[in-house]
C-alpha cells in the first residue's frame, strides 16, 4: 500500500532520515519505536508529505506521491493523521471539527456529514460533546475526537504521531482502546509511540529507528524477546 524507497530528509545540516526503505501492506499495524531524535516522527510526517523529503520516493496506492504534479490534497484525503497535540480546530465545535473537511471537499452534504459526525461521536461515547468547543474537553476526549475526525474522511490508512504522549496517564487507556478497536476493524495503521504494551499487543510489525535509519524490524514477539541490534537491546533494557 505504501512503498518507501531511499527516503532522506535533513533539516539544515542535520540529517534526520537517511536512505530508508520501507513497505506497508494493507491491514498491517506497523509500530515505530525509537529514542527521541531518531527521526521516527519525521518519517511518519513524510508519508503524507507534511514534511517534504529531500530524496527518495513514496508510492501510495500505486501513485508516486513524491513526484511532480501530484495533487497532494487528494492523496491526503485517504491518509488520516493523528497528532501528539490533537490539533482540534479551536474555533469550531466538536461536531463542526468532524464535518469541516467532508463538507468543504464536497464529499458529503451538510446533513450527511452531520449524521456521520454524530455516528462517529456515538462510537466514542462523546455524542453529548457535539456542540462544545475543544477547550472544554479533556486530553483523552480531544484525542478520541481527533481520531474520529480523521475517520470521517474514510481513510485507507491512519498515521499516528505519538498519540498518547501528551496525555495524562489515566487518559492513555481510553485512546489506546479506541486504536485497538480500529485495529480490530482492519484499519491499516502506522503508529509512532512509546507504548510498548500497545506495540506488543496490537502491532503486526515493530520497527526500531535510530539516527535516521531502521535498525531492526520484526514481529512484536521476536522484536521484544530476541532483539539483535545492540542499540535496540540497550533501548529495551532502559524502558522495559
Amino acid at each position: 500500500m505504501i512503498y518507501v524507497k531511499d527516503l532522506s530528509k535533513s533539516f539544515g545540516d542535520n540529517q534526520v532520515i537517511s536512505h530508508i526503505d520501507a513497505h506497508i501492506e494493507p491491514g498491517e499495524k506497523v509500530v515505530i519505536v525509537g529514542p527521541s531524535g531518531s527521526g521516527k516522527s519525521t518519517f511518519l510526517r513524510c508519508l503524507n508529505l507534511l514534511e517534504q523529503p529531500d530524496g527518495g520516493t513514496i508510492t501510495f496506492d500505486g501513485e508516486e506521491i513524491t513526484g511532480p504534479s501530484v495533487d497532494i490534497n487528494k492523496v491526503r484525503r485517504h491518509m488520516g493523521m493523528v497528532f501528539q497535540h490533537f490539533n482540534l480546530f479551536a474555533n469550531l465545535t466538536v461536531k463542526k471539527n468532524i464535518m469541516l473537511a467532508p463538507v468543504q471537499l464536497k464529499l458529503m452534504s451538510k446533513a450527511e456529514a452531520e449524521e456521520e459526525a454524530m455516528r462517529l461521536l456515538r462510537l466514542v461515547n462523546l455524542e453529548d460533546k457535539a456542540d462544545v468547543y475543544p477547550i472544554q474537553l479533556s486530553g483523552g476526549q480531544k484525542q478520541r475526537i481527533a481520531i474520529v475526525r480523521s475517520l470521517a474522511m474514510n481513510p485507507k490508512v491512519m498515521l499516528f504521531d505519538e498519540p498518547t504522549s501528551a496525555l495524562d496517564p489515566e487518559m492513555v487507556g481510553e485512546v489506546l482502546e479506541l486504536m485497538k478497536q480500529l485495529a480490530r476493524d482492519g484499519m491499516t495503521m502506522v503508529v509512532v509511540t512509546h507504548e510498548m504494551g500497545f506495540a506488543r499487543e496490537v502491532g503486526t510489525r515493530v520497527i526500531f529507528m535510530d539516527e535516521g535509519v531502521i535498525k531492526e524490524e520484526n514481529t512484536p514477539r521476536e522484536f521484544f524477546e530476541n532483539p539483535r541490534d545492540p542499540r535496540l537491546k540497550d533501548f529495551l533494557s532502559k524502558i522495559l
Binding site: 507534511l50 490534497n73 493523521m81 497528532f83 490539533n87 474522511m153
Partner: peptide
C-alpha cells in the same frame, strides 16, 4: 496560531 492547526487542516486534504 499554532502551526498544528494548519497541519491538521492540510492532513485532512483541505488546501
Amino acid at each position: 496560531i499554532d502551526k498544528g492547526q494548519m497541519e491538521a487542516g492540510r492532513s485532512l486534504g483541505l488546501n
